[in-house]
Design a binder for these strands. Structure first.
Lengths: 155, 155
DNA sequence: ACTTCTATTGTAAGCATTTGCAACAGCAGA
DNA sequence: TCTGCTGTTGCAAATGCTTACAATAGAAGT
């Protein structure tokens, strides 16, 4: 459904003065090679470097921000040490993350249908909700009555 | 509606082995002194230090995380350099942030009513949606037809 | 008051990410 | 081809936040 050349052509069309450099092409190739995956910036850098190319991590950060500005990738804080990036292709999905046990539950985009509608109609705001993480407490860790959620207790 | 001693008493009740130290008290006092404000960690540190106390910034980070774990403060990335923290008191509010012009639009918590309900009923997940930032495009910056959003163009 | 146990702090070092700047590369016009 | 303009990169340094560890200081029991 998406291929490298289409993506690049689209990016160039949307901003004719942007340059499709080797680095940008390589980063996109790396992302396309695992189209459903969530990758940290370091992952991406490693994937590109695995092909024998040298490429600075700060450049990858810049490229990922650039792709994000065009809605090509999403950036999400899943609560691990570093943000993950993934291609925005087809139906987006999101994650519920339990603060108590760390479980990550995948949910599909329909949960945001009503919020999207409200924002568009009542606020005329066009939200970018491509890959959200919602923190909270999962069923197993549900706090009992007025007893206490200890969460990842750091007491 | 909230005062320092009630908060402290509640925190102690919820975790009897937690200690109410001078530092924790001072951080809470600082937050309570501007109950509606959004403060960076650095702000909070400065507020406390303005009272002549010395207190390390890393301690403040730790205290804010601790308060967040108990749902007393929320932490939000508003897209400025650093996260902002604010007391979770009464009705929460949220923000829409325009990626093109930087405008910040305040919205109240009702926009999340339906999402909350879905998560609770369909996923038995109890979300912590206390102070969200939703990025997107505001009315004034609405992209025209198939023309292009340049956003904060970094071309 | 003294001891013991554990929570919390300060310090310094670490990680993730961003930024300033000089060098470089692609494109346009002379 | 040369010249200038602008976008992009690599490097190094800066920023925001977290963590390891040793030292400190509450709380509870003696």
């Amino acid at each position: 459904m998406i291929d490298l050349d289409t993506l690049l052509a689209d990016l160039r069309r949307r901003n004719p003065s942007a340059r499709i450099t080797a680095q940008r092409r390589l980063v996109l190739e790396a992302l396309l090679s695992d189209i459903k995956g969530h990758h940290t910036c370091e992952d991406v850098t490693r994937m590109v470097q695995a092909r024998g190319v040298t490429l600075d991590q700060s450049t990858v950060y810049r490229i990922l921000q650039w792709l994000k500005a065009y809605g090509v990738v999403s950036q999400t804080d899943l609560g691990m040490g570093s943000d993950v990036y993934c291609l925005v292709a087809g139906e987006p999905h999101h994650h519920l993350i339990c603060l108590a046990c760390g479980a990550i539950i995948d949910v599909d985009d329909t949960i945001f249908a009503s919020l999207r509608r409200t924002l568009k109609l009542a606020y005329r705001f066009d939200p970018r909700i491509e890959h959200f993480a919602i923190f909270g407490t999962c069923e197993k860790c549900k706090p009992h009555d007025d007893e206490d959620e200890h969460l990842n207790d750091m007491s």
